[in-house]
Computed example of a mutant assay.
Amino acid sequence: MTYYRQVGDIPPKRHTQHRRPDGGLYYEELMGEEGFSSDSSLLYHQHIPSAIVDATPWSLPELATLANHPLKPRHLKLHALFPDQRCEDHDVVTGRRLVLGNADVRLSYVAAGAPSPLYRNAIGDECLYVEAGAGTVETVFGTLQARQGDYVILPRGTTHRWIPAGNQPLRVYCIEANSHITPVRRYLSRFGQLLEHAPYCERDLHGPSQPLLIEATDVEVLVKHRAGNAIAGTRMIYADHPFDVVGWDGCLYPYTFSIHDFEPITGRIHQPPPAHQVFEGHNFVVCNFVPRKVDYHPLAVPVPYYHSNVDSDEIMFYCGGDYEARKGSGIGPGSISVHPGGHAHGPQPGANERSIGADFFDELAVMVDTFRPLELGEGALVCEDHAYTWTWAGRGPRT
């Protein structure tokens, strides 16, 4: 994301001496994407950022998946994974339960009442949607405030931790990429500015505003990383606390974006899902459906037409409002619908007629479309509503 920010104390020119009050040098770190060929930031540390004193294996939560076979549309009830009200024993990092995944992206869910350990994803960017609750995300760049409806974008390699606020559990839908997650390319100028037709702009993106300095020694950081063709975890012990950055500048950093700041694109007839797109990664996109005026052609049918996902799986996470197309299916807040490639899907029976004449939909949902099939994680296997598959026909399966 080419949008420059400067925070804290930095020297007038990069790669030059930057001295602390006692005359010693700060340690400059370049954090950059695609080698030295894409967005980057320069961070100035009080201590050597490479200094570790121990490294041992970290056992990751269960990441095994099973193919969606036989091929079926599915309904997953994520709130059933964390039924207790406080969720005091769970945190946003280690408490995640894998719902769906493939070689490009993993979708998890967590309800957390405890602070997370320090954590760094060295595989890809993370896009986390706050369904409910609030909290603070402490990062090596500074602090972010995360509230209901916020997306939190964390670039690959960002050391951070989550701290829930208040008594309500922090419910988070986690999109973990094996790539970078960026604003949609068609919304950007060739120099990286969000254009006038984009449904949001730079004013809606909120990055850290000041450094976060913590003094400590022998500090544990959990690192998720590649190990051959597998995903592995390592516990690294740093000689000094990673949150020792006195200043940074550049175009690569974590930020929040509220779904409520997304300006919906509408038209006389039904708009296709790309009109709702907000982010993209390698082989997947993220869209959001927000409260909006709907189609105003005199003969419009406001709910979606039936469509076949010939190239992708469509995953909808329902997080608020009243989703018109799914009425009568059992889907509600906290649900995920899995509509796989190879199967035509669309409104529930009767939704087309009921929608005629509507001028506004009050719905809130986050959609991920993937271009490789998604498999079922352990979370999906224990929270599926098996009746959903047959709701279009009203009967089944055959005996």
Rank of each mutant, 00 (worst) to 15 (best):
M1W: 03
Q6A: 15
G8P: 07
K13I: 15
R14F: 04
L25P: 06
E29C: 15
M31Y: 11
G35K: 05
P49W: 03
W58D: 04
L71C: 15
K72G: 08
P73E: 02
L76S: 01
G95C: 11
G101N: 00
N102V: 14
N102M: 15
L107E: 04
P115N: 12
V137Q: 10
E138C: 07
T159A: 15
T159R: 13
W162I: 15
P164R: 05
A165K: 08
Q168P: 01
Y173T: 10
V184C: 02
R186H: 06
R190V: 04
P199T: 05
Y200H: 04
D204M: 00
H206Q: 10
G207L: 00
P208W: 13
L212N: 13
D218F: 12
E220I: 04
A230D: 15
T234E: 07
V246E: 01
W248R: 02
R268I: 02
P272A: 06
P273D: 15
H282R: 13
V290S: 04
K293S: 10
D295A: 05
V301M: 05
P304A: 10
F317L: 06
G320T: 14
A344K: 02
P347Y: 02
G350E: 03
E353V: 14
I356G: 14
E363M: 14
A365E: 11
M367P: 02
G377E: 12
G379V: 02
V382W: 14
W392D: 10
R395K: 12
